[in-house]
Design a protein around this nucleic acid. Structure first.
Lengths: 193, 193
DNA sequence: TGACAAACGGAACCTTGGTTCCGTATAGTG
DNA sequence: CACTATACGGAACCAAGGTTCCGTTTGTCA
């Protein structure tokens, strides 16, 4: 009854805050390098904490994962909505896609999160993801309006292309830098001259 | 010492042959529809045999998988080396890529096999895979020589693009038919007019 | 038709990886 | 400095899925 407004009951102990951060850092690095597959105990070990501690902060592996991915998407979102410094809308659009590709193909966890089934992050990060899609759509639309990018390929398709390319880049055979592959895709998106 | 030439000791019992085929069929269908993730007992059940039987024919899940994938690659290989009926090398090349895309994106197991890490089918199917790559390279080279396809994108890159696109098609968000995405890629491969 | 090797079925086993539980250690406070 | 709520560590637990084992069944051949 009393104080039902729940105004931040307790501040959180110092070591707890520190550990939480350590876990987050270790997880980000580990998942980025090796993908979702890495067992949680490995993350805990690298963070220098016990598994119990990890689970105290993140009730589930997926929760930990979510915390990281949301962050990643946020930073992409920021980049997508940044003001266009140059003038060419198409180049701006393509440049964003390229940056996104190198981001995604560098962070293995993102690749997994976006491409791999089995995790329904999609459900949890839906908001963020939709925002990102919307932002990209704006970029694309501008480029289309300007007349240099074909209008018959939607944002969802563009996303599929970029994400797919990142996956294809990382795994299949030898090294093909994602940026290069995205270059081909972008050329495919240009209006034929 | 005696008879060390190993000239096919025994013919294999009738029911065994039948069961082997059933397993192969069930596995092909199941893996195609649901990917590598499906547990072996499910396959056994759908084939109408016990797990023991399945393991008698295929000593390991990977072996079973390999049997199927090799077959799939073979059929793609056949298509890749089929004589060019039309005349336009570029169209022939693109048409093959499109067919390959629809094949791969339809057969979930192929997607998994080609894109997903964790299975080293690559090691086992290396031969077949190399043959396929070589065949595709021939198609590509012809198209390049003809002057309608850019020469600065290698076969490995093309493969990464196509495979990536298939993965991106299946998973990320709503349905984007792989063929359509490959279309964009092909446009990106055309020499700018 | 009887005998035997080959094949079958599926319970049991093992490993891997996520999650829980609880006794111990410690930051924060009077 | 003592006391308590908070946090910690990691052993133990549980589920999933691949693989093995062995008693039973069944083709095949004389």
């Amino acid at each position: 009854m009393a104080g039902s407004t729940e105004a931040e009951p307790r501040p959180m102990r110092a070591d707890a805050r520190r550990n939480r951060q350590r876990i987050l850092d270790a997880a980000a690095a580990t998942f980025a390098a090796e993908g979702i597959g890495v067992p949680v105990d490995v993350v805990a070990e690298r963070a220098g904490v016990g598994i119990g501690t990890l689970y105290r902060h993140f009730p589930t592996k997926e929760a930990l994962f979510e915390a990281i991915v949301v962050d990643r998407i946020d930073s992409m979102l920021a980049r997508a909505t940044a003001p266009n410094e140059g003038d060419d809308a198409a180049e701006h659009f393509f440049s964003f896609l390229t940056t996104m590709a190198s981001e995604v193909s560098t962070k293995h966890d993102l690749t997994d999160a976006l491409a791999q089934a089995g995790f329904d992050l999609k459900a949890r990060c839906a908001e963020k993801f939709d925002q990102l899609r919307a932002a990209i759509d704006t970029l694309r639309q501008r480029a289309v309006d300007q007349g240099s990018v074909r209008g018959d390929v939607g944002t969802d398709e563009v996303l599929s292309l970029v994400v797919g390319v990142c996956v294809g880049s990382g795994k299949s055979g030898a090294a093909c830098p994602a940026e290069r592959l995205v270059g081909v895709v972008c050329d495919g998106l240009r209006v034929r001259s």
